[in-house]
Design a protein around this nucleic acid. Structure first.
Lengths: 164, 164
DNA sequence: CTATTCCCGAGTAAAATAATCAGCTATTAA
DNA sequence: TTAATAGCTGATTATTTTACTCGGGAATAG
């Protein structure tokens, strides 16, 4: 799963929609001004969200967008996948069987990215729009036992920058 | 933590280095041809890796790069953080106290990205270069109980594309 | 009707990524 | 001591992606 600011915009917009819709449609113009995102860009994002079945549109005056599902059933992973085009297969010709590099060897890092993508997806699928809206997303201390990898002994300083 | 192809290149190169160095330095020219990455681009990446204390350099004929630590002590998170510049704070003026948006409200999605970054870091910190080299990175079925989020009932189709 | 709002495609601007280039320094080995 | 190797550096360019703009259209409420 690709993680870009595009997906972040989508989640911000969907959260705004969830927050300000009380049964009534919310116009993109409102979301645009509140979230400081350009209207046209929002339109592009919502076109994808609509095709992805995450929102319903209502045209005409008083129109706008409505969540197509409940907030609980709207998972963050869905939102991000709806707007973020699958990454073009970089240099890894990931045709599973044949392998990645010219020498026929499946590139060693393939499994890593595969599993990382899986981890990210698992997490984002575990979080709903409702969770984000009601601040239920909270820091979890440790990670499950993943792969056969050992944990690094000392915890280390790190600067987060998936800043949102 | 930023996840780009740059970080992927770095991990590929480091894995190649780990694999082909038997105590002796490995030249970037060798890595470049094996991994099909341009030499100059590799030089840029290794400049950062060296500053990050992940590799040592040996100049002159027969020179090249050596791992500065054991493969077990070289965590993937370190490699990626060494080459991927911290993302410039997008629109979220993340001055903790003041909050994100103009209205003073800490943006609702902030905690989400914060926690996602944490999850990614936790995972990548749990994997060492040795794990990648020796194919110890394997699919784990489920995720720990994270936040108060509920799991989505039905498992859903998804197209991974953190392809490596 | 007319204003509002979604809708759509094409085009542009800015930024990040990836690569190139030119030239330097240290080290080895002939 | 010279020539070849290979790291080191900064500047520049090319490519791609992101973010945004523009110009129209179509549905619908009042």
């Amino acid at each position: 799963m690709k993680l870009t600011t595009k997906g972040r915009y989508a989640v911000m917009a969907m959260t705004d929609l969830a927050k300000h819709s009380e049964g009534r449609p919310v116009s993109l113009a409102d979301i645009a001004s509140r979230q400081e995102i350009s209207l046209s860009y929002l339109e592009q994002l919502f076109a994808r969200l609509r095709r992805g079945g995450l929102v319903r549109s209502v045209r005409g005056p008083g129109g706008g967008y409505l969540l197509a599902r409940t907030m609980e059933d709207t998972r963050i992973s869905d939102v991000i996948m709806a707007v973020d085009e699958p990454m073009s297969a970089t240099r890894c010709k990931s045709n599973s069987a044949t392998g990645c590099l010219s020498d026929g060897t499946r590139c060693l890092t393939h499994d890593l990215w595969d599993e990382l993508g899986h981890q990210i997806h698992l997490y984002l699928d575990s979080v709903s729009l409702d969770d984000v809206m009601n601040r239920k997303v909270r820091r979890s201390a440790s990670q499950q036992d993943v792969s056969s990898a050992q944990k690094k002994p000392e915890t280390q300083e790190f600067s987060l920058d998936v800043a949102g």
